[in-house]
Design a protein around this nucleic acid. Structure first.
Lengths: 349, 349
DNA sequence: GGCATGATATGGAACGTTCCAATAAATTTA
DNA sequence: TAAATTTATTGGAACGTTCCATATCATGCC
């Protein structure tokens, strides 16, 4: 009563074999769709399987070296629609090749990430696409590679990791939005969001700074604000910024969700993006189009990046090669209504 | 060369045992954290494990009847933020109990759903939380239950299924928005989105119809429009509606993403929600607040539903009971700016 | 010294597959 | 008709774990 409580004891190929009057080997052959077994026998076995409610035991098969058909997809923030789009792109490719992607969320926790990755390895995942959590170290990634696990890093590069990477051109994208704002006449431009330690942020800040310098400006350290790369993070950081006596005239946000959080914070103070302050995002998620005012941002095509990552992974699984490859997707400026020229009078409240 | 290409041959507890100078049984005990093994031995074994890069083989363990610590989470539309919120709620509960949720997306395909569920069973999932795809039959769900698989249906009920259910009060919610629109003076109210066959839609339509009838109105079949429960679906259906010579003055949308799609379609024709037509949603996703105008909708608290579903599943796994339970979450009306009284002149173009 | 006792450690069978080598039966070839 | 070939089928070992029953070795007690 307190022990095993499996409703129906597990049905195995041996039970099927007995029922169909053949050997377990024959059942195994039927399972693999082998042409070595006679039509009539195959039918009899199939009948027995559905009659007894047989469930294939993948664990036992893997034990004998069979390839499991799952691929792990480790995502740092499922609530960010950008990652949902990425996941869907990955799925588009994987499903056509017979792999089933299992998604797990780490919510930016490296501890959780380690658990999740371990669990996927334990279950015999054939490969992993990893959107690394915030403080992921190169070493963790390399350990995985050393075990021979096919692994693709997506979206976020990890310094020191020898893994393949699929990401967007962060520096170029950030430079493009910054140049756009400068051309509108902005001089005091803030960079808001993302954590200092993130490589992606470093890249975007580098592009941002470069654009400013090319225009003879310099990036003011007082206007470089950290935040978690989430809506809440953007909200908090912008709320702080708005308590200052002098506001920047434009804010380059780390990504779209940060920008949306920032715009929400502005709304609380009666300020409006595209009128009192120019705001830009990064990613071009569906939300960037829907929010009001529509967000000027950098289009990245998450779905395409997902497809590339999946293709790269499949290639590595098939070839057995672990040579790191890199794909950098284009980062296109998309101008919408969230950016205005600098207003004459800056302070609102 | 062409055969197995595992970078490092698999390390097993036997290798660890040899390295540490103990028997495999002792290694197994260390793995389980048993107190039967001496401190000093435990250390030696742990050292050997990290030295050789040991990976626990869950498949082999499951073979001996061990409980796998994964739970499957099958989601019909990952692109809908409502389901992302649900997933996060589920995760909040599961992670504290040592289970790791593996998420898989079915994109509303029953075929895909069957594949995904089978894969999860094959990998020894301890239970499944299922947001059923569009045309899921009661039989499919019952087959799963008959195998003894702990299973909770989330969000969408499936007629004929004997499974536990966690969902929101669809009829009451729809009745509330309809009553609200009627109190604003609307008489020609459309219901837009969702597929005829969906039980959830039937429930919402029933509440909608009841509210109309209580006000002495009747639901006009010409104003009941089907669509896929997605943004694209809402866009297409509203585009069609707008080609008619007479518009309704208010539209109750199946859910928020349909409503957002519908508002996008209105925008294309120069019409504005909350001015030319009242629009409502269902779910109260973050987007409902962010879009312009903010969407009047029915708040459902996806995170809470996710937590309930997870708790229910854990209870069933622990107790071994498969008695169906039901939790119906409250559906609260949230009034925002997307609803106006009926305009005097209706047609815009 | 003989004997329980408790603390650690261990061999071996079992779990459900796969796959090789072997067999049996039917068919073709010489 | 014997031998060779083809077509179907099968037993058994192996995969990496768990867990039971058993073994070893100090201790402490009579």
């Amino acid at each position: 009563m307190s022990g095993k409580r499996r409703a129906s004891a597990n049905v195995t190929i041996i039970d099927i074999a007995r029922e169909a009057g053949v050997s377990k080997s024959t059942v195994s052959l039927v399972l693999k769709g082998s042409s070595l077994v006679a039509e009539e026998t195959r039918d009899r076995v199939s009948k027995a399987m559905s009659k007894l409610g047989y469930v294939y035991n993948r664990g036992a098969a893997n034990l004998r070296g069979a390839q499991s058909s799952i691929v792990g997809m480790v995502i740092n923030d499922l609530a960010n629609p950008f990652f949902a789009e990425l996941a869907i792109g990955i799925e588009r490719v994987l499903r056509t090749s017979g792999y089933i992607p299992f998604i797990a969320n780490t919510a930016e926790s490296v501890v959780r990430q380690a658990e999740v990755v371990r669990s996927m390895r334990e279950h015999g995942a054939s490969g992993i696409i990893l959107c690394p959590a915030l403080e992921t170290e190169g070493r963790e990634v390399n350990d995985l590679l050393d075990l021979g696990m096919p692994l693709i890093l997506a979206i976020r590069r990890v310094p020191g990791a020898r893994a393949s990477l699929v990401a967007s051109d962060n520096a170029a994208g950030a430079a493009r939005v910054a140049a756009h704002l400068i051309s509108l006449g902005h001089r005091r431009i803030a960079f808001l969001g993302g954590m200092e330690a993130m490589a992606v942020r470093k890249d975007r800040v580098a592009g941002f700074t470069r654009a400013l310098e090319e225009a003879g400006l310099h990036a003011d350290p007082a206007l470089m604000l950290e935040s978690m790369p989430s809506k809440d993070g953007g909200f908090t950081a912008m709320s702080n910024l708005l308590t200052r006596s002098e506001w920047p005239t434009a804010v380059v946000c780390f990504n779209d969700v940060v920008a949306i959080g920032a715009m929400l914070a502005m709304g609380r103070k009666g300020a409006v993006a595209g009128r009192d302050m120019a705001i830009t995002g990064f990613d071009d998620t569906a939300e960037a189009r829907q929010i009001s005012p529509p967000l000027t941002t950098v289009a990245v095509d998450a779905g395409d990046l997902g497809e590339r990552a999946a293709q790269m992974l499949l290639r590595q699984i098939a070839s057995g090669s672990r040579t790191p490859e890199t794909y950098i997707g284009e980062a296109r400026l998309v101008v919408r209504e969230s950016c205005c020229p600098p207003p004459r009078k800056r302070k609102v409240s």
